[in-house]
Nucleic acid binder design. Structure first.
Lengths: 181, 181
DNA sequence: TGAAGATATATCGGAGCGATATATACTGCA
DNA sequence: TGCAGTATATATCGCTCCGATATATCTTCA
């Protein structure tokens, strides 16, 4: 079975209980978005494909007169999800405009280069706080893994913020030798 | 001036000396790729646009009979680059299949969930080593910023590897209470 | 009653990325 | 000398992804 990672996000999101495309999107935006996003343009077509492949099953679940389809994982879908979880992860990407700017910061005066690090730090501090506010919700669930991942995110952002602070200090400190570890 | 970040990668890469599209691509693959990639399909069209906008200047620089164009930054290009560097960074993305798998690892037995963390750790250790091998080259340049960024990458991967190790231990350690900070 | 916001599905355009096509030039070695 | 393999150089295609938006119905509450 050849599925893209987005398909597995969906399988994972419906693996505990059936959900609509809209609910999946909202859940993704609230949880995995920080390391794996998904848009409507991916979710709805993918739900159709997964349904045709027999990995999920669409169930009519209207709310009032507005029609609504929730998708439940099938036994085939479950084993597909588990097979994927057992493979070593293969996709790792990062896009960080801050690091890019820092990389080219040699064309700026030192003080302006330090400003890049200040912006980066501020952003990471804010992110860590935002994630911290999500902890109670994750703590309330019985599945411990979302909480582990969330705490990893918090720790990562705190590490990053700290690194920015240290690099800023190093940059502004009265230059002795040019560089030393 | 409305430019995408890739355009600024190019401006940055030609800001010290003129380079061909091929050289820019090779440089990106050797340096910024870990936090900002660029493909031929972006670079060559973008060089044309930047040239038309007067931010870079194409110069014929054939090697033997094979034609070749190197691009030099113009004064307009320089101030455009600096303006961009002075804006706070706005793009931050991460795609980490490992964290995604960990997020859903609750459907697996504990030992198999720990295996995800082992794969992730192994990958990060390898990455840190790869980056470490690039240090001498970065140290040889007089611009300190690529070195700072490189060392940040090393430290990040080491932090990540360490986190994976700690989480694996926590996962396998004789479960007392379900969770505690 | 009616405006605002939430739920629900669908689709479009643009950007990014990997892969590949096409040529020429250099390098090593049989 | 021949030639195979690799490096240089430019160009392009198809796919995925993402943000934005369109459309419609439902709920809330002033």
């Amino acid at each position: 079975m050849e599925l893209n990672p987005t398909a597995y996000v969906i399988l994972g999101m419906v693996s505990r209980e059936p959900r609509s495309g809209y609910e999946i999107k909202a859940l993704v935006d609230d949880t995995t978005r920080f390391f794996w996003a998904a848009s409507y343009g991916q979710i709805y077509p993918e739900l159709k494909r997964l349904s045709e492949a027999g990995l999920v099953e669409g169930i009519d679940a209207p709310r009032g007169d507005r029609k609504r389809t929730v998708y439940a994982i099938t036994t085939d879908g479950e084993s597909e999800l588990k097979d994927w979880l057992r493979q070593p992860p293969s996709t790792y990407e990062m896009r960080e405009e801050g690091l890019l700017k820092l990389f080219f910061a040699g064309v700026l005066p030192r003080e302006e280069a330090a400003e890049i690090l200040r912006s980066m730090r501020e952003h990471r501090v804010g992110l860590a706080e935002r994630l911290q506010k999500m902890e109670p919700k994750a703590l309330a669930k019985e599945d411990p893994f979302p909480l582990i991942v969330l705490r990893g995110g918090i720790e990562f952002n705190e590490w990053f913020a700290d690194w920015c602070e240290r690099m800023e200090r190093q940059l502004l400190e009265p230059a002795r030798e040019k560089r030393s570890s």
